[in-house]
Amino acid sequence: MTNRYEFMKPYKFANGLKLQNKIVMAPVTLQSSFFDGAVSDDEVKFYRMRSGVGMIIVEVANINEAGKGFEGELSVADDRFIPGLGKIANAIHSKGSKAVLQIFDAGRKTSRKILRGVQPRSASAVAPHRDLKNVPRELTDTEIEQVIADFGAATLRAIRAGFDGVEIHGANTYLIQQFFSPHSNHRRDRWGGNVYQRMNFAKAVIAEVRRVANENAPSSFLVGYRFSPEELSKPGITIADTLKLVDVLSDEPIDYLHSSMGNRKRTSLVDKSNLETLNSRILKTINNRKPLIEVGNILSPQDADEALHEGASLVAMGRELIREPNWIAKVKTHDEKSIRYTLSPVDMDLLGLPGGLQQELRTGFLNAMNFTDQETSDFLDKFGQMEGFGG
């Protein structure tokens, strides 16, 4: 019986939204939208093939043109995108999954090339370490208020497109994290200062998103928040800072927290002397006030149950659900031996992987995807797609 696994049991949020199981698909950057951010058929197919998990979080959708972070990125910056986003929501719902749209502004984590000559902007005029020549301009107070309003407008579009919730992206060094980080936020107005004052932007975004949801969506509409526990920048966000943030967020009007990590068992990258996992420290701080979604190197049914038994409310998979869209169905039908834990380069079309994602997997994530044949993968990377390998 599949209920031998804890993750196969339903989950109910405090607001009443019920998931058919405790597996979440983590946001996967498909890089396959049209040039203007409109939804492509490849994206719709990708999500339809993975419906069946409890909830799918759709990857970053920019809330305004200046917040675009990369080519092929989804947009929720205009009403004209609602029909296409609705197709994604419907595809996710096809086998009972709940659909959540991740909304964000890239801030300085973009370039003039991406923004067609426009200078990126951020909390302060501080360049990221990865690109010291890419100095952003500091947002004015009026512009900050507009960005907050844009998060609200994006939430309304997600509601109209049929999503069951939105996830505010406060992680991965995007704009909200830039306001929280002492590296990128040197402001001395109401949007900067000490660790608590640097939370003001995130709190204002949450308040606006919640206001829009309360006025326009059912009470079961989710508002989640994703965060990154640490930065390697000096100065940068420390786990001590994040525990203060998590403590504050646990009393904010959100429905869940989502820690962004490549390995859920990771300890501090900055304080090597502390061997307690970051998620364990985060869970202690939350103290059952909010559900926590854990992500990072969760592959097998045993991995998922272990995370739940250690305190996570829900477990998220990204890379594993790229490799195995039928993961939950195979567990349900007692066919676990056939679950893919490796990815053959020649199967990428079969698995419904859009072209933009395929390119990213062959380059930036080459070593993380467990490709079955490194020589074949290197061949594809060098010569591109050929007949029989995709198009």
Rank of each mutant, 00 (worst) to 15 (best):
F379T: 10
N287W: 13
L353K: 00
K68Q: 15
G52N: 01
G384P: 01
A14C: 12
D347E: 15
A26C: 07
R160I: 04
L156Y: 14
P10N: 11
G352K: 00
H93K: 11
G152V: 03
A14M: 12
D189W: 03
R48T: 10
I56E: 06
F7G: 00
S228C: 13
I339Q: 08
K332C: 12
V295I: 15
V53P: 04
V58M: 05
N62D: 01
P120T: 03
A202E: 05
L85M: 14
R210Q: 05
V58S: 01
I88E: 02
G193I: 09
G96L: 03
D105M: 08
T363E: 15
V60E: 13
P235Y: 07
A106T: 07
R116Y: 12
D189N: 05
L366S: 08
A127F: 04
T376F: 13
H129M: 12
G72M: 03
L292R: 05
R121W: 13
L139G: 08
L361W: 06
L278I: 15
D347A: 13
I286K: 11
L299S: 14
D141H: 03
L308Y: 03
G388N: 11
Q102L: 02
A329P: 00
T285L: 02
P235R: 00
D305Y: 01
L74F: 15
I92R: 04
R188Y: 13
A77F: 04
L19Q: 02
A304N: 12
A26R: 04
L101G: 06
F201N: 09
Y341L: 13
F151E: 03
G162I: 00
E310Y: 14
S250Q: 10
K22L: 00
L101I: 07
R187N: 05
Q359R: 12
A26D: 02
V44W: 06
T267E: 08
T372C: 14
Q119A: 08
K133P: 06
W327N: 01
V118E: 10
E387Y: 14
G54K: 00
P136V: 04
A14S: 15
K244Q: 15
N15R: 05
A329I: 00
A66K: 01
L243C: 12
L314W: 03
I82M: 02
A123M: 09
R137Q: 11
G390V: 08
N200C: 04
N194K: 15
I57K: 06
S181H: 03
Y341C: 07
N21H: 06
N200Y: 02
F7W: 04
P182S: 06
F70R: 09
A368G: 15
F180K: 07
N274Y: 10
E360K: 10
G37P: 04
Q119L: 07
G170S: 14
I88Q: 06
E336N: 00
E320K: 07
D141F: 07
G54N: 04
P120S: 05
K9C: 01
F34G: 03
N279L: 10
Q177G: 09
A154G: 15
I144M: 12
H129T: 14
E143W: 09
R226M: 11
G262W: 10
Q119K: 09
